[in-house]
Amino acid sequence: MRYNLIVSYEKLEDWENAKQAVADYLENYPDDEAAQKEAAFLETR
């Protein structure tokens, strides 16, 4: 559910909230490779 929040922010082009959401997500799930890729993607925004 929390991962979907990140994707939703991205679709809204709300990059700052997406970055914060992925950072929060990775604190709880640091081994999630998909979230790590999202975080790398968001660094370019």
Score class of each variant (00 low, 15 high):
W15L: 04
L42C: 02
E43S: 15
W15Y: 12
N28Y: 05
Y9L: 09
A39Q: 13
A34P: 08
E38I: 12
T44P: 00
M1I: 02
S8W: 10
D24K: 06
D14I: 08
R45V: 12
A35N: 10
A34F: 12
Y29T: 04
A40Q: 07
A34D: 15
L12T: 10
A21K: 06
D31T: 09
Q20G: 05
A18V: 03
L26H: 03
A35Q: 05
E10M: 15
Q20F: 07
T44C: 03
Q20E: 10
E33H: 04
L5F: 07
K37G: 08
V7M: 11
T44L: 07
A21L: 01
A39I: 01
E38R: 15
F41Y: 14
D31K: 09
K11T: 10
Y29M: 00
E27W: 03
K11N: 12
E10D: 13
V22Q: 01
Y25G: 00
P30I: 02
Y29R: 06
A23E: 13
W15F: 10
S8E: 13
R2M: 06
M1H: 08
A23V: 05
K37C: 05
N4Q: 14
Q20D: 04
K19A: 06
E13W: 00
D32N: 13
F41C: 08
P30T: 04
